[in-house]
């Protein structure tokens, strides 16, 4: 049980791929113009990661070391294509918005990194959990970054939710700042860099405050 807790903590906070490992920055920067965009791409990534970790783990002793990378890539690419096709068929409008960034999940280094670093050495269930939690941690970062950029840039929240959940969800869109002119910088690429930098800074600040609060007790995770 303890192991699962640690995997979850690592994925969501301690080793968060968006804020700590800084892997997978391409979608982080490009797709976070709104909360819905950011979170849906993050969720796709989490699904791909869970599935690829779960499929690599059982075959980890079957694959000779020399060709493990090509085989892993093959598995990840097949899974991504599969998700791409399914989304194209059943979530067409969301697929149109995320566009090229769905197939690009293949090249997201966080996917291969977790396959190689975790799934290739661990049993199926922890591997799947690790993949999902790492991806979900990224999804949360994308959601927060997307949400902040959306509020500052357009003054709304959850715009585009109808693309994911159908036209009836359009009523969920929140206008946070009515009569807002919009601060375009937040939506444009520089806003992504500045936003991510501020998020990383806030995480580091939270950590350092936590450390300052309990200066002498060495945490059990420190040995790790």
């Amino acid at each position: 049980m303890n192991q699962y807790r640690e995997i979850t903590e690592n994925g969501l906070w301690k080793q968060n791929s968006g804020l700590v490992q800084l892997l997978g920055l391409c979608p982080t920067l490009a797709m976070t113009v709104s909360l819905v965009n950011g979170f849906s791409l993050g969720l796709m990534t989490a699904l791909v990661m869970a599935a690829s970790n779960a499929s690599v783990s059982p075959i980890r002793r079957l694959v000779p070391t020399e060709i493990r990378i090509p085989v892993y890539i093959l598995i990840v690419a097949a899974l991504v294509t599969l998700i791409d096709l399914l989304m194209h068929a059943y979530f067409h409008s969301l697929h149109a918005v995320l566009g090229i960034f769905i197939p690009l999940i293949v090249t997201n280094c966080i996917v291969l990194a977790r396959v190689e670093a975790f799934a290739a050495k661990n049993p199926v269930v922890p591997s799947a959990l690790d993949g999902f939690m790492m991806g979900f941690g990224l999804a949360l970062v994308l959601a927060v970054l997307g949400g902040v950029r959306e509020i500052i840039g357009k003054g709304t929240l959850l715009s585009g939710i109808d693309l994911a959940l159908g036209a009836s969800a359009k009523a969920w869109v929140i206008t946070v700042l009515p009569d807002y002119h919009g601060f375009l910088l937040a939506i444009l690429p520089p806003g992504a860099f500045i936003g991510l930098a501020l998020l990383i800074a806030s995480k580091n600040w939270l950590e350092s405050r936590k450390q300052a609060a309990q200066p002498m007790t060495p945490s059990p995770a420190a040995a790790h």
């Binding site: 002119h181 601060f183 375009l184 910088l185 444009l188 520089p190």
Partner: peptide, 8 residues
Amino acid sequence: AVLLISFP
């Protein structure tokens, strides 16, 4: 530059 790209 921030102002120019935000409020052209």
